[in-house]
């Protein structure tokens, strides 16, 4: 595979800017939470400001050590992880990690992912972030499959989702994105309730719970037994969730996420009504994959005669 360099030989007329609610992004590609750390880890390979936005690693009220190793492994066409929201906690995040990132990369667009075990924790986190500068949006993680409290359990229950979004809305003026689970019993209902409660966009969706067993050791590979499946394997699942939401709630600001391994998949999400896509596992494979995505989507748009993302957004609905 060749490396893709930022300099393109061809000048395309296609513009990649996109709008998610009131937030404008230079391009529709967003680094997904948990795959780009605190923003600086891949800076040698890809300047973080190249991304439309970066969703930093989910932060919780207190520091979390994460789950027992092994925490990740490859599966057919994907990977399983059970990191368990390991993070430095909101205090250190707002005092050190975030200011450090913003100072170093003032032109990057950080989005902060948060996870609480209760509504009160979500509100506390949102409140802390409301005092911080340089944040473009807050992503409520209602879909982590690897924690015993909060996470996926939050997103599965419409009343707790409703309450958390409502209370967070009261606490901040920042755009609120809600990242829902592909296993939510009724993703359309959750999306609709979150929007009614004051969310600015829905991210559809997150990893799919799964597991693998080592046949020689005769036990599960992951220390946490189960984990979240990501990568190409889950793309059709995530696309369906996004499509159902976009079809049922016309005009909803929507971000596709799950299994976007090339520009073709990103285009599919946009055709299904998404304004942008989050890219995760594909970044592990190729931290500089954004350059390839940009080239490929421009090439598609040129072939199809589209000058901007909005020209083909939702066309498959």
């Amino acid at each position: 595979m060749k490396n893709f360099k930022p300099e393109s030989k061809t000048e395309f007329k296609a513009q990649l800017y996109t709008r998610i609610g009131k937030l404008m992004l230079d391009n529709p590609f967003i680094a997904a939470s948990g795959t780009c750390g605190y923003g600086t880890e891949y800076a040698d390979i890809l300047p973080p400001e190249k991304w439309g936005a970066l969703v930093l690693k989910t932060v919780t009220v207190k520091q979390r050590d994460g789950n027992k190793p092994p925490r990740c492994c490859e599966t057919d066409s994907g990977m399983l992880n059970s990191i368990g929201l390991a993070n430095c906690g909101i205090e250190q995040f707002t005092k050190e990690k975030l200011p450090e990132f913003i100072k170093k990369f003032p032109n990057a667009k950080p989005v902060v992912s948060i996870a609480g075990e209760t509504t009160e924790e979500f509100v506390l986190l949102t409140g802390k972030l409301a005092e911080s500068k340089g944040i473009n949006a807050i992503e409520l993680n209602f879909s982590c499959p690897n924690v015993s409290k909060g996470g996926i359990h939050f997103g599965a229950d419409t009343s707790s989702a409703q309450e958390a979004v409502k209370e967070c809305r009261k606490t901040t003026q920042l755009p609120i994105w809600v990242k829902i689970s592909p296993t939510a019993p009724d993703p359309v209902k959750i999306a609709s309730i979150c929007m009614e409660s004051g969310a600015d966009a829905i991210v559809a969706s997150n990893t799919v719970p799964g597991m693998v067993i080592d046949i020689w050791k005769e036990k599960p590979i992951l220390g946490n037994i189960t984990g979240g499946l990501s990568g190409p394997a889950i793309f059709p699942i995530s696309l369906r969730v996004a499509y159902l939401i976009a079809k049922s709630i016309p005009g909803i600001p929507l971000i596709g996420c799950g299994g976007v391994s090339n520009a073709d998949k990103a285009i599919q999400f946009i055709l299904a009504g998404c304004s942008a896509v989050e890219i995760g596992t594909a970044v592990f494979r190729s931290p500089n994959i954004l350059y390839k995505f940009m080239e490929e989507i421009k090439s598609y748009m040129e072939k199809m005669g589209y000058s901007k993302i909005d020209d083909f957004k939702g066309k498959a609905l």
Binding site: G34, G37, Y42, K57, G66, P69, M79
Partner: peptide
């Protein structure tokens, strides 16, 4: 250890 990113981003390769 198993690792995904190799760069400190994913926290997948934790050792006690």
């Amino acid at each position: 250890e198993f690792m995904a990113c190799g760069s400190g981003a994913c926290a997948g390769c934790a050792v006690p």
